[in-house]
Amino acid sequence: MKSLKKQRRIQIIAVAVVALTLSTVLIGYALRDGINFFRAPSQIVAEPPAETEVFRIGGLVEEGSLVRGESETVRFSVTDGGASVPVTFTGVLPDLFEENQGMVGTGRYINGVFEATEILAKHDETYMPSEVVDALKAQGVYQEPDS
């Protein structure tokens, strides 16, 4: 009788381990495209990522670099005070997007240009993503907003 209970217990534990392993693999597979690493312009210039890698870039839109074309393509540069990376984006920019303001973009770095598929801008006068603030502080450029 005891060996039957022991066998059942081992079977239940084995099924639970297999189910847990399978669910972990499926979650990791589902999230593989959703995990985007953040990089500052200085990091991108120092160590350019592979052209196939999707990541996020953040910093300030460099003053005087915003060029709107005849189509929906917009060109500008993002800086963290230490380096500047040219960006192209085809689409509609957020309403609060402007020069000298914080932004985060998602895309790929191809032939020295960050080709953005998504651009996020600050949502009010004082907000800036924490990754951007950290990168600007590391370069000694960040200034606390007036409260």
Rank of each mutant, 00 (worst) to 15 (best):
L22Q: 12
E125N: 10
F76C: 06
S3N: 15
V17M: 13
V87W: 00
E125L: 12
R39M: 11
E115Y: 05
Y109P: 04
S84D: 07
T52A: 12
V54M: 10
E72A: 13
V15K: 11
E53A: 14
P129N: 12
L22T: 15
R32V: 15
Q43R: 08
G58I: 04
T79K: 02
V92I: 10
V61R: 00
T21A: 15
F76N: 02
P41K: 05
D95P: 11
V17R: 10
V25K: 12
E144N: 07
S77A: 12
S71M: 05
A116I: 01
L120T: 04
P48A: 06
E53T: 13
F38W: 01
T52V: 07
D95C: 08
L4T: 15
V67Y: 03
P48E: 06
E98T: 13
A135S: 10
A19M: 13
A121Y: 03
Q43L: 09
G112V: 06
L26W: 13
L31N: 13
V87F: 01
F55S: 09
V78Q: 03
I44R: 01
G59F: 03
P129Y: 03
E51G: 15
S77I: 05
G112F: 03
G34L: 13
A30P: 12
F97N: 04
Y29S: 15
E125H: 11
L66W: 00
G81V: 06
T79Y: 04
G64I: 01
G91L: 03
N100G: 05
D33R: 14
T79W: 00
P41C: 08
R68L: 03
G82E: 07
F76S: 06
E118G: 11
R108E: 12
E144H: 05
G105C: 10
S130F: 05
R75S: 13
R68E: 08
A138T: 06
V18C: 14
E131Q: 10
E131D: 08
N100S: 10
V132W: 00
L66Y: 05
F114P: 06
V74D: 05
E99I: 02
V45P: 07
S65L: 02
L136R: 01
M1L: 15
E53H: 10
E131T: 06
